[in-house]
Each structure stands twice: as C-alpha cells, then as structure tokens.
C-alpha cells in the first residue's frame, strides 16, 4: 500500500473512531438516565480508550466465542467507571442491544459494575486493585503457552492508591511481561477529592519507568494519540510491560460534572441527561 493510501485508511479509521466515541459517550449517558446508580462521571473519562481498544484494530476478540483462546484479554479493573463498555459490548455483538435499556434493572445481567457473568468481561470487578495482578498471571500464562495474545488493563488513578496495584507493577517489571498493557485513566479525581490532594502520584509515567516499565503520557481524549499509543504497544517489540498514562477529564462533556471534585457521586436526572446529549448532537 502506498503511503498516500495508508494515510487515507488511517484518516478514515480515526474518523470512524471519533464517531464511535461520540456514540459511546451518548449511550453511556443514556444508560445513566435510566440507571442513576451507574457512576457516570467515572465512565465518561475512558470513552476514547475503550472505543479505541474495540474499534481501532487493537483488541482481538470474537463476540461469537468470548473465550476464544486467541483473543486478547481485556480487564476493566476500574469496574464502576467502565459502564461505557456496555454499549460497545452490545454494538460488537457480545450482548444484545436491547439489554442496554435494562442496566441495573431486575432480571438484567448488566449491573452497575461489569462482571464476569457478562460475555466479554473476564473478571469480577468492583473491588479496586485486583485487575493488574490477575492480568500479570494471565500474561505469564500466555507467555508459557507461547501465545501472542496481549493483556490490556484499565485502572483508574484513584485505584492506584491500592497497594496491590504496586505489588503487580513491581512484579510485571521484574518479570518483563511485555505482553501486558496498563492503561491508567487519570481523570485526577477520586471519590472525595482531587487525587493530588489525597495521594499525589505525579509524575506517574516516571514512577512506572523506575519499576522497569515503558510508559507514555497522552491526552486520553485525543483519539489519534490514544490510538497511536495503543498500537505502539504491540509493535514496539519492547522487553518491558507497557503503560499508557491517559490524562482524562472526569465527567467529560457534561458541565455539571466536568472536573467537579465530587462528581464521582453526582447523578444526572433524565432531563439533565437529555440536555447534555442535546448539546452534543
């Protein structure tokens, strides 16, 4: 393929990713409109990350066979903040589209936190600090099996206060788990305050490098940057585990939520959801 056609394909892909991200953003808000228990602000910050993983030729998956051995493993460690994965799972075919209307409703398998009872979800989430360690075990096993599959984990920056995350960070670096990708959705806000006022981990990329990781910091809402960083992980050929520190905005696109220190626990009513979506259309 010529350079020109490569660029055309890349531009088309980015255009598609932007459209998908906008759709995932709207669907996440719609879900919140009918399921106010969902953590909407937290789920809006990783929209571009999740969109790029699933639509950007990053993750390998087969919705008809969720446990396909050749799949890449994806762990939503910040489970409460990954409700935005529901529209994606429905859109790509892991679950039915009609299920989105039932989130948090009796009889649905889609609760406020995505769990392993849902096709496409690997682990039981919700308790923070587990995902990266489990991912380390998976990455180690995949190496033993000589699989070329990768393991991707999304954690929140509030979650990084859990000591178990750092047990896993140290372990992955020591073991050279270069089939492991950590995406830190750094929206800068935990439940009660800005992260910098609780436990300040900046600069996170430098800390990870000190623990024998490759780490880059990107604007987590710049889909081209996220796509490039995620694509590089497989292509880099590095001997180290890879981290993407994604600078994001909690509650992005919703004025009542954006960067509000207490937005984690804020809910929007249906009128506010409609107004937010209307403003974006």
């Amino acid at each position: 393929m010529s350079n020109e056609s490569k660029q055309t394909v890349a531009a088309a892909l980015l255009g598609r990713l932007k459209e998908k991200a906008a759709w995932v953003w709207r669907e996440t808000l719609k879900i919140h409109g009918t399921a106010p228990e969902t953590r909407v602000a937290s789920s809006l910050s990783p929209v571009e990350i999740l969109t790029t993983l699933y639509y950007g030729n990053v993750l390998r998956f087969d919705p008809r066979n969720p446990q396909w051995e050749g799949r890449d493993r994806f762990i939503a460690s910040k489970g409460h903040g990954c409700v935005s994965i529901y529209p994606i799972l429905a859109d790509v075919g892991f679950i039915g589209r009609e299920e989105l209307a039932g989130v948090c409703k009796a009889g649905s398998r889609l609760g406020g936190i995505p769990d392993a009872n849902i096709p496409g979800i690997e682990t039981t989430n919700g308790s923070l600090g587990h995902g990266l360690g489990v991912a380390c075990g998976m990455a180690l096993a995949l190496k033993q099996k000589r699989s070329d599959a990768f393991v991707y984990v999304v954690v929140g920056d509030g979650e990084l206060c859990e000591g178990s995350v750092w047990e896993a960070v140290m372990f992955a670096g020591q073991q050279g788990l270069n089939n492991l990708v950590l995406i830190a959705d750094c929206n800068g806000i935990a439940m009660l305050d800005y992260c910098r006022n609780i436990i300040n981990l900046d600069p996170l990329d430098r800390k990870l490098r000190e623990f024998q990781w490759d780490a880059v910091t990107v604007d987590g809402h710049d889909i081209a940057a996220v796509h490039q960083a995620l694509s590089n992980c497989r292509q880099s050929g590095s001997a180290r585990p890879q981290a993407i520190v994604a600078r994001t905005i909690k509650g992005r696109g919703v004025p009542q939520l954006e960067n509000n220190a207490l937005c984690h626990v804020k809910t929007l009513n249906q009128e506010q959801v409609a107004a937010a979506i209307g403003g974006k259309q």
Binding site: V134, G137, M170
Partner: peptide, 17 residues
C-alpha cells in the same frame, strides 16, 4: 516476593488461562 495479595492475583490469572 512478600506480597500475598499479588500471589493470589497472579495465581488467579494463571488458573483463568
């Protein structure tokens, strides 16, 4: 290392595979 939480988590990942 002396890290029981990670021991269980890593063992879980291995068993899931």
């Amino acid at each position: 290392g002396i890290a029981e939480q990670n021991a269980v988590n890593v063992a879980t990942g291995l068993a899931l595979e």
